[in-house]
Nucleic acid binder design. Structure first.
Lengths: 243, 243
DNA sequence: GAGTGGTCTAGACCACTTC
DNA sequence: AAGTGGTCTAGACCACTCC
């Protein structure tokens, strides 16, 4: 039986949640793993089952765990490479989801722009991997992306042949560099297409483009990837509910 | 002691939550009201206090209730007239929130466009109140709004002198028409400014504008107001976190 | 049938607000 | 001091999944 660490003025279920979260952060429990049942956890930490439930519920709320009736509690596998669907309409005729194909136009190692370095939390002048990607549906370009990855953390990624890189990057980061994207912050605005983007996206110069900046982080909160995506506003619609 | 209505196969806390929600929908409990304590509710409905807690927690989650330690449980007062802050940066030099002033350019009664009627859930050809508003900070226009309200529901609103209408409309709907906005659906895209909007917002023709459509509903889910707001994308930034 | 999470009970004690 | 919600306990029974 482990003791419950941390400030004992905090509620037990919170300290327990912290202890469980730590196991996810340090990868002793990996995405997809089943974790011990609530009774086992309760016994291990010396709390009542109800208190363990409360801790687990908090982590479900945070999006770290998933519970499945009769099967167990699992570390959630974050897979929001498709999160573009929250923004753009790529549905086919039947309304089904399509994953746009991906064409890597350029990959190189360069000194990062200072704003990118700042957001990735590395020192000014650091080197990183730069990529330009184009995403297409039925051969028609719909999104232009710039991506920066910090070095040396993503060194192994350079060994991968660009031809082997499919549309989903995060599973590749996970497999090749042991870097798991757990969450991301996105910010959104619009701008007029300049000459380069107009040519790339095959729209007229000045066409309104939606610009989505994304900073992806791992469970520990370290920034893993900086990304800027631009696509024609016409294809774009974002819905949200407020209360 | 009231009986718990509804399908017996549903969990008690859900049927209890439905019963409590109904009291908010039918305005026996109004926004700002304190509702009975969990012990009283538990006794009234013949459930254990823990079950009542679970029902109350569900309604807090839905955004209908607010609990305050030591004070009680209250019907949440939805006040998202300021929800524009989620989208536009209006902060002053000190970063404080400013409520933009409001100028009503036009108010009239007209047949609603069929798309507006459809979204408001009234029959094609119905009449409604149309308003054009301009919102400004320090005299500079930042947002152009079109608003439609269904008739006869909002008949009393016509009696109000436009000069008496401040920047916040929802409290006025509440006071004059007993219509409470409980939640809203927003959808967002961008377009280029046409001649009219360019003149109104004092930007060049073709400048990218953010377009926000909002459909506001009451607790019962009836649509109360249709609104389309446009502002220069330059002043716009929307942030969100995804997991 | 064994193990899991989901619902429900019936209390106890604590922290906070109000009077 | 009284009343409120917040935490915590120690069980019970049920529904679901898997073997």
């Amino acid at each position: 039986m482990s003791a419950l660490a941390g400030d004992n003025r905090l509620p037990r279920y919170q300290r327990l949640a912290d202890a469980l979260r730590a196991r996810i952060v340090d990868r002793s429990w990996k995405p997809g793993d089943r974790i011990p049942s609530e009774n086992v956890i309760a016994e291990q930490f010396g709390v009542a089952p109800g208190t363990a439930r409360q801790a687990l519920a908090a982590l479900v709320d945070e999006g770290l765990l998933e519970r499945q009736h009769g099967r167990g509690t699992f570390v959630r596998r974050p897979s929001f490479d498709q999160s573009l669907f929250r923004f753009f309409r790529f549905s086919g005729a039947a309304g089904e989801r399509l994953i746009p194909e991906s064409r890597i136009l350029r990959r190189s190692v360069d000194v990062m722009p200072s704003e990118v370095a700042r957001q990735l939390g590395v020192s000014e002048g650091s080197e990183g991997i730069a990529m330009d990607r184009l995403r297409l549906i039925d051969g028609a370009p719909i999104l232009a992306e710039q991506i920066w990855l910090p070095l040396p953390r993503f060194q192994p990624f350079l060994a991968i042949d660009p031809a082997d890189i499919g549309p989903l990057l995060y599973p590749i980061y996970d497999a090749s560099c042991e870097q798991t994207v757990a969450r991301a912050e996105e910010s959104l605005t619009a701008e007029a297409a300049d000459a380069t983007l107009a040519r790339l996206l095959r729209v007229a110069r000045g066409t309104p483009l939606i610009v989505i900046d994304r900073l992806a982080r791992d469970y520990a909160g370290d920034a893993l990837e900086w990304r800027r995506s631009r696509g024609p506003a016409e294809r774009f619609r974002y819905r949200t509910e407020i209360r």
